[in-house]
Each structure stands twice: as C-alpha cells, then as structure tokens.
Design a protein around this nucleic acid. Structure first.
Length: 648
DNA sequence: CCCCCCCC
C-alpha cells in the first residue's frame, strides 16, 4: 500500500533528516544562491523566479576576443532546444543549443565534455542554466559560441518571455532591431531589459553629449558611449559618513525611463556640483557616468548595475515634453498584502485617511534621531494599512491637504500589526497622480468610502489572508531557531521549517467557541445553552475549535509548536466537532486517529515569541501556516539542488 | 568611497 517514497517520509525523523543534512550540509546555501527571487531582486514573491541575463545574446553576437568581461561573466539563459548535429569525422557527438536570454535567442554549441549532461537529461528543453564559462570561435564574420561550463538552475516547462531571433552581428553594435522589442513591462517586474534596442529618432544635438540614447536596462559595463534620458524619481538627502575607511558625503538618485530604473550616486565634490542640479521629477540627459555592478544586498532597485557620477559626468536637463517616462505601477490592493512575504517590495495606492505629526525616533542601531510620520491608507478593498515615512519624506509631507490619493512605489512590507508598510529611501510617492486608479479611488472615497469602516490586517488572523506564507528561502532547522534565539527581543520572529509530528497533546485539544462567524471566543455553558460574552448571545451548541500543542522534530532536534483551528483541521482532516463526536462515541477510534496523526511531515511557517507564564520565561512557537508536503515539489527541488552542484 | 531604511 505504502509506496517506498512515501514511506521514506514516514520514517523516523532522525533517519529522514540524517539524509537531508547530508545533502544540505554538502551544499550550503546552494538553493538560496541559485534560485531565490531575492538574489535576483525581482519583486515577485513566487519562490521560483528565474531572471535571465537579458542582453547576453547581444553581447555574444557582438563580442570581440578582447571582451574579457563577456567571457568572465556568468550568463543565465534558457535552452529552447538541444539537437544532436551530424558529425562527419567519427568524432564525438556535437550538440547544438538554441538559448534565450529572454529577449533574444541564438545558437550555441555544447563543448563535447558536457555531452553527458544531454545524454543524462540533466539539461533539456526549457532548462534554465547559468553559463559559467564560454568561448567564441570567430569564423569569417560569424561567431560561434561554445559553452564550456554551466550549472543548472531549474527545469521549467515553458519558454520564458518572448525572445526574438537575434540578427547577425556586424551592423554597428547591432542596434535597431525592430523585432527586439521588450516584453510587457510593468514597474515591479520590468521585462528583462533589452540591450540597446531603442534609438531616439532625433535626439536633439547637444554639445558635449555623445552616443545614442540608451534605455536604462541596456546599460552595462560593456558599453561606454551612451546617454540615458531619464527622470529623477527620487533624490536622497546629502548623507555624510565617517568610518575607518575615511569620511565624506554622498547622495543618491533613482533614475527611471520606460525600460527600467537605476540608482546613481555622487560623492564628495561631485555632490556639490550635481545635488543642486538634479531635481526630483525632472528629466535629464545623463552620460559619462560609471556603470558599476550594483551590490544587491544594498539596493532595492531592479537593476544589476548602478551609476557612479564622476567629475566628468554630464547632466543636462531635458525640456522636451514628449516621450518622457512616467512611473509605472503594479499596485497591490491593501487586502492582498497578507499574501506578500515580510520584507517584500510592492506598489500600493490609497487614500490617506489619517496622517500623524512628525515624531522623532531614536534608532538603536544608528544612534541618531530619525523623523517619522505615519499615514493610514485605505482603499476600495475595505482594508486599511499603516505606512511609515522617514526622514525627508516624513518632514516634507504636505499635511494641509486632507485625504489625498497617494501612489507608492517600491515600499517594504512589514509585519507590525499583521501587515504594515514602510518607505525605503529608494521608494517614491506621488500625490494625486494623473492615473486612472487615482480617479477611481477619489470617486469611490468621496461618494461612499469616507463613511465606511475599514478592516485592519491582524496578527490573530492566522490561516487567513494576512498570515505569513511558508518561505523556502527562510528555512531553518529547529535547533538553529533555538540557537539563534528566534523570538527573543531584537531577534527575528518569523521562520519556516520542515518538520515531522512526533506527538500531539491529547488533553485540551479544543475549546467550545462561539459559532458566530469570526468571533471564535470561548463560550460558557449555562443552564439553557452556551453563552458568548462578546456577542451577548446564548447558543444551543458551541462550535469546538482546536488548540493544538504538538511536538515536532527535524534532523536537528525537536520543538513544541502551538496551532489553532486551521492547524487541527490540517492535522486530523476533520473539524474539532467531528473529532469530539468520535471521542465521545468510541475512545479507541479517537486514540487511533491521534496516533495516526503522528509521523506526518509538513512545511511550517512559524512565529517565535517570548512569553512569561507563572514566573517562567520561555519562547513559544506559533504555527501561522502549515502545508502538507508536496512530494513531487520537494523532490524536484532536491534534484535541482543536486544538479546545480553536479554540473559545475 | 555609502550600504542604515530605522520605532512601536
């Protein structure tokens, strides 16, 4: 009855996890370094998002043997086809690959030493892989890319994006390909930016400005004669620093055009020159800045690169009113914030129902005062959420306007009070923007919204839309969670784990609750029924709700987890009313059900919290989400983890 | 060359 694989998961956790620890131990962090969205800084929350290296095909097509950067850089591509090509001289098989960077596709050959990857189906159609090493044969005017080393990131089933065949190289860096338009572009997930494909029809000849107008997404260290035409969507304060490496001042701007966004930074004397010149909201031609690799860890923008403004950087205001980029949004309705993970970035639009005064917060970390202002946003979903503004944005907020519509871009999702929002210095806000959503909100609020009451996201709303999701990139072993002090002051609260149920406390497995939908309060038995204090009503019978306390284990150790009704339903596959009915009717059957619930493995999303009860302080772990294991999914992830290492 | 995104 029980297939071997399922039994594998039913083994004692020590055995199961010994195996797991061997795998994870050998390849530390491999998963999070290859396939997590955070690494690629896409703004989606899908666990699996693959960012192809847009522009790589263009580079391959135009590179010269001296382009060391092309050959020393990793390129993530998707294989669209793999075909054996005839060999004439009885040599080894050769495989021809069509690979896509999401924007273009082109041919490449697999080095014969990698043939095994094809023969073992390690790489197939739709495999996403990072090319770690390649070389290029130059035959007459043609280039033949040969893949020398790669690692597999994932096996997908569909073509990513709408890549176009790349046209032959040779015509001036290969610009101007009509078919090479970008895929649908939204603000939060801009299409993999094309290499320079857009050329301004008639850029006004300005003295000192050289080169073509490049889309921001086309900028890379491999191009140097470019000019971008971009709007400053955000300008920071001038910041000063002093550390053991020295001291100085700097400021950043966020630059945006239709293709994407990029951060620019000026230091020291360049600050004096450019800070007054660059104004928020205005459009500029910018050229001769350095294109540096962005340090992903510190950038919230969707770009692999950032600009370093230097002494010779040219910045010139653009007064044209046509074809100027506008901020594009991908709004998340406020009721859907619960579906985003903590620390995710998102765009929201709402009515400012309330705005606090500016207060000063003392940052423990930075040891300085930071101005702060809280806004309460509401929208047509009937939800409200708190948005925190910091620094300049808090101080300069115009409080004279009541209930404006504000659109926010690139704000951080927090978990205070269930869900909260906070601005980064790179986030932008636009008051009463000239967009449809704004008009709709205004109309709704003025006609009815103002009178309405709003639902806040709440912590207690577990299992519902505002609970935290299971997050594969935030997996921890139980021992690690204990060692790291999750739940202690200043420590993280949220973690995800995979663990197996060892024991469920069978006493007090439920409580009699008010049957009113959403009330959940405990009811008290009185002479003529069950009374709810909150609803001030007497009911003939209560609705029993689970309170689960269970010991779970993984390879590292064990922990007690607490869960509410949703957890019990997941564990037993029936409601508490049904389980109690069985208990009262047939205790043996009840015991069998309790027993059967053991040894099942789940993916958990948990919240650790310090708690003091009868003079004892301890950390309690609450279950916010509990998902049955999808064996196929788990196996696929482990397989890809192995492949990605083995293919190195 | 910064790199903190803060607090309740």
């Amino acid at each position: 009855m029980c297939g071997g694989f399922v039994c594998g998961y039913k083994r004692k956790p020590e055995e199961v996890t010994e195996e797991r620890s061997r795998i994870t131990g050998s390849f530390p962090n491999a998963l999070s370094h290859t396939v997590t969205p955070t690494h690629f800084r896409t703004h989606t929350t899908t666990a699996m998002t693959y960012q192809l290296s847009a522009g790589s095909c263009r580079l391959f097509q135009t590179c010269t043997p001296e382009d060391a950067d092309v050959f020393n850089t990793e390129h993530t591509v998707q294989f669209l086809s793999i075909k054996k090509v005839g060999n004439t001289n009885n040599g080894p098989d050769r495989y021809r690959i069509i690979m896509s960077d999401g924007v273009h596709y082109m041919q490449a050959m697999l080095a014969t030493q990698l043939n095994q990857l094809v023969q073992d189906n390690v790489i197939t159609k739709c495999t996403v892989a990072t090319i770690e090493k390649l070389t290029c044969n130059y035959v007459q005017d043609k280039r033949l890319i040969i893949i020398l080393a790669l690692r597999v990131l994932a096996h997908t089933t569909e073509k990513i994006g709408d890549p176009q065949q790349i046209e032959p190289a040779g015509n001036d860096q290969g610009i101007n390909s009509p078919g090479a338009n970008q895929a649908a572009s939204t603000s939060t997930t801009p299409a993999p930016g094309a290499a320079p494909v857009q050329r301004q029809q008639a850029p006004p000849p300005k003295p000192g400005r050289t080169g073509n107008i490049y889309p921001i997404e086309g900028l890379s260290p491999y191009q140097n004669n470019w000019t971008i035409k971009a709007r400053v969507t955000q300008k920071s304060d001038i910041k000063t620093w002093s550390n053991n490496r020295g001291e100085g001042k700097l400021f950043n701007v966020t630059l945006m055009d239709d293709s994407g966004e990029i951060r620019g930074t000026a230091f020291n004397t360049v600050v004096d020159e450019l800070y007054p010149k660059l104004e928020e909201g205005k459009v500029y031609y910018i050229s001769k800045a350095r294109v540096n690799l962005a340090k992903k860890k510190f950038s919230n923008l969707n770009n692999d690169y950032e600009l370093g403004f230097e002494r010779n950087t040219e910045v010139e205001e653009c007064h044209e009113v046509t074809n100027v980029p506008t901020v594009k949004y991908n709004f998340v309705p406020l009721d859907a914030l619960g579906e985003l993970n903590k620390d995710a970035l998102c765009d929201v639009i709402g009515i400012v129902k309330e705005a606090s005064e500016v207060t000063q917060v003392t940052s423990a970390k930075l040891n300085r005062q930071i101005p702060k202002r809280e806004l309460t946003l509401v929208d047509r979903s009937g939800f409200s959420v708190r948005m925190t503004l910091w620094g300049k944005q808090a101080e300069q907020y115009n409080e004279s306007e009541t209930t404006p519509v504000i659109a926010f871009k690139g704000v951080k999702v927090g978990d205070f009070g269930g869900r909260s929002l906070s601005m980064f210095s790179s986030s932008t806000m636009q008051v009463n923007p000239d967009i449809e959503e704004c008009f709709l909100l205004r109309g709704w609020y003025d006609s009815s919204g103002a009178e309405q009451t709003f639902k806040a996201h709440s912590i207690s709303n577990t299992g519902g839309s505002s609970s935290f999701g299971f997050n594969r990139t935030d997996m921890h072993s139980l021992e690690e969670v204990k060692q790291a002090g999750y739940g202690m002051p200043e420590k993280p609260e949220q973690f995800s784990a995979r663990a197996t149920i060892m024991h469920i406390r069978s006493e007090n497995i439920s409580y009699p609750a008010c049957p009113t939908s959403g009330c959940n309060k405990k009811v008290i038995q009185i002479s003529d029924g069950w009374r709810c204090e909150k609803c001030n009503q007497v009911f003939p019978a209560p609705e029993h709700r689970y309170i689960i306390s269970m010991a779970v284990a993984d390879y590292s150790g064990q922990a007690w987890l607490q869960g509410f009704n949703e957890v019990g339903v997941e564990v037993f596959g029936m409601t508490a009313n049904e389980l109690l009915e069985i208990r009262d009717r047939d205790i043996a059957e009840y015991n069998a059900i309790m027993h059967k619930a053991n040894c099942n493995t789940f993916n958990f999303s948990c919240r650790a919290k310090q708690d003091t009860y009868q003079d004892t302080t301890r950390i309690r772990y609450g279950i916010s989400r509990m998902l049955p294991i999808d064996y196929k999914e788990e196996a696929t992830i482990l397989r890809d983890l192995l492949y990605s290492q083995w293919a190195r």
